[in-house]
């Protein structure tokens, strides 16, 4: 079953008075419990695609179908309600939360907004979410700036899964973490995917990470798709110049594990 189908997505900005396309005629599909990776050099339009898919930006052209329905047709309360099923994890886990928030509040918000649990039930839900992502439930009362980066990214994942989404967009979600923490977060993501059947749109410039988690990969350059296919196959034998350059820039690929 297709969770997300994007076709001919285009977003233009003006640069020095002239329009240029940050994203140009991009199309892809993600199936249930599938991971599609977006790779490409800096400025190739990966984050713009993420923001378009999440309706944080409006496209200039193209279609976005989410779970079989036109996602671009939604607005206002209908869009906010639908957002429960389409979540995001940001790169910088410190910037992704209100600096004044506590862990409990961060997790309480989605439960409250989407009416998932009653006021009295929510503390139990929050504890369960923390345990689900491998954190101690006692962390709930801490301020966001009082926990480590790895813990913070787990809280971000807990918040993303709080509303039982069918798709999570991860924009460089593990890039800011050091290697050992990154490995455990990737394991958590794979575990969540197999248990909850969540699809991921996984953005990374690290082909080693992509090979470890993604089923398929799309390689972008200057807003256009230059290559796409099975993640292992593309990384093993890239056809495009950009794909070859990305592989060459990732020495860890020579080892078999990321």
């Amino acid at each position: 079953m297709t969770v997300l189908a994007v076709s001919d997505l285009t977003k233009r900005y003006r640069r020095g008075g002239k329009p240029f396309a940050a994203v140009e005629a991009v199309s892809f599909e993600i199936g249930q419990a599938q991971t599609l990776a977006l790779a490409g050099p800096s400025g190739s339009g990966k984050s713009t695609i993420a923001r378009l898919v999440l309706r944080l930006l409006e496209p200039d052209a193209g279609r976005i179908e989410f779970e079989g329905a036109d996602f671009l047709a939604l607005s206002g309360a209908a869009l906010r309600a639908r957002r429960a099923k389409l979540q995001m994890v940001f790169q910088d886990p410190l910037a992704a939360f209100n600096p004044r928030a506590t862990v409990a509040r961060v997790l309480d918000d989605p439960l409250r907004i989407h009416g998932i649990a009653s006021h009295t039930e929510r503390p139990h839900r929050i504890a369960a979410l923390l345990e689900r992502v491998g954190l101690d439930a006692g962390l709930a009362q801490r301020a966001i700036h009082e926990i480590s980066g790895g813990q913070r990214q787990r809280v971000a994942i807990a918040r993303a899964i709080a509303t039982r989404p069918s798709l999570i967009v991860l924009d460089e979600a593990v890039s800011a973490l050091d290697v050992s923490v990154r490995g455990r977060i990737l394991e958590l993501l794979l575990d969540l995917q197999s248990q909850e059947r969540i699809a991921y749109l996984f953005i990374s410039h690290d082909l080693g990470v992509i090979r470890a988690v993604a089923h398929r990969v799309v390689i972008l350059d200057a807003g256009r798709i230059v290559e796409s296919g099975d993640a292992r196959a593309v990384i093993a034998d890239p056809q495009s110049a950009i794909g070859k350059a990305l592989v060459a820039a990732t020495p860890r690929l020579n080892r078999n594990r990321p």
Binding site: R51, A81, N98, P110, I113
Partner: peptide, 26 residues
């Protein structure tokens, strides 16, 4: 323009709540 405001939109928070609860205090 900060990520956490985008994050509040992603979880479906209403604009007025974002403005007065997430942005104003900061």
């Amino acid at each position: 323009e900060r990520d956490y405001v985008a994050g509040a939109r992603v979880i479906g928070m209403q604009p007025m709540e974002i403005a007065f609860r997430e942005v104003l205090p900061n």
